[in-house]
Computed example of a mutant assay.
Amino acid sequence: MSVAVGAVPAAAADGPGPTAVAAGVRAPVDQEALRALMVPDEVASGTMVRVSAPGIRWTEATGGLSQDPAASFRIGSVTKLFTSTVVLQLVAEGRFALDTPVQRLLPGILPAHWAPITVGQLLSHTSGIGRPCVAPENPHAPTPAAVVATVTDPACPTPEYPVTRQQYNGINYFLAGMVIEKVTGRSYADEVQRRIARPLGLRHTYLPAPGDTSVPAPSLAAPSEVEPWAWAEGGMVSNAPDLERFLGALLRGRLLPPAQQRELFAMPALSQGARDPMSRAGLLRAELSDGTVVWGKTGSMQPYTNGVFGTSDGRRVLVYSYTGVTRDPELQRSRALDLVAAAF
């Protein structure tokens, strides 16, 4: 997402309906720009946007989405930010290092003939692992090991080595979740609650149990009978206030010691030239036309397409979610860029 897009100031609110308070900030919210992007069209049938900064809070929803600012939704691959945060906390505790081979932590999970893949390569999507080439066992609710087996099957190609590019791949985060469980002896869901959700007071953020297709009321949109099988890669449920609090705390250094905090913003060499460059911790980096740099993550889990972005100091944060009309990745990417540009 490192592209030159127009920077438009914005902001966010807590009650039903649009409100905005601007005091001591560099620019007020441009409600017209945001609302223009929220009109139902060929990309989205309804959109929720929340933007916050010191003295500003603005939120609104269109297209029949819930006007309750605490409405819950599936966050998709935004889940990966929770996973990478837990991994970096474990690194800070000395449980392993970013350059520790996954094969050492998860013996027998990856084929013996594969070159070593490090934990850091998982987080930064520089592992070289390819796309799944076989269907998982029990595809409606596969285990993490079964998902990983879709790329380790003998019919699949060996990962790229040496790795020459950054390639986004959810399998990396299934492996990262497995590392978390192996090292801690507790479930991924429990570690997210113990290390992030409870300390930050994220009362609406959790990983559903296998087979749980529900979204707590109020939900942002009508529930979808989709199996939330994506686990540490994309299976969590949250809401806009919780995501705002989480990303703000992460960017401000409340969840990681200084050494691991630097990983949030460090760009691996292989991110050079990537269309959507990601940091060593798996954060997307987007640079706006006025030089503003924001960090965050996008994600989809039917029926939602979402994103969270913030400035590096965590002082301005955008959360959005829309119910998609199209699955065209180019249209989704364009909408994400436009929302980011309008919010910062």
Rank of each mutant, 00 (worst) to 15 (best):
M278N: 00
A259R: 08
R57I: 15
A269H: 12
Q67K: 11
R245Q: 14
I75K: 02
L90V: 04
Y320C: 01
V134K: 03
C156K: 11
A23Q: 08
L202T: 10
E137C: 03
P258D: 11
L98V: 14
E263W: 06
V51H: 00
F309L: 00
D328S: 14
P154C: 13
L247E: 01
L81M: 13
P268K: 08
G235W: 09
W58I: 03
T85V: 07
S219G: 14
P268C: 05
I196V: 13
G130D: 11
R165A: 15
S279T: 15
Y206A: 13
K80V: 02
V8K: 04
A33L: 11
P241W: 00
L110W: 01
G128K: 05
D212F: 07
T143A: 15
F344Y: 07
P159I: 07
A92V: 04
A274H: 10
M278T: 14
P162Y: 03
A10F: 01
P101G: 08
P144Q: 07
S312D: 04
G15A: 13
D99R: 10
T79F: 07
S45D: 03
L243T: 09
F96A: 00
S289E: 14
P101Y: 13
P257F: 07
D41Y: 04
V78G: 00
P218T: 04
D313L: 08
L37V: 10
R252Q: 15
A281L: 01
L270T: 07
A97I: 03
S77V: 11
E225D: 14
I75C: 05
P223A: 10
A141F: 05
G15F: 09
A70F: 09
E32V: 15
V21A: 13
D276E: 14
F309A: 06
Y168R: 06
P157C: 06
G314L: 07
S334M: 12
Q193F: 04
H125D: 12
P277T: 12
N138I: 04
K80N: 06
G201F: 11
S289A: 15
S84L: 09
V340R: 04
R275V: 12
A70M: 10
A71D: 02
V151R: 06
S45I: 00
L34Y: 01
G15H: 09
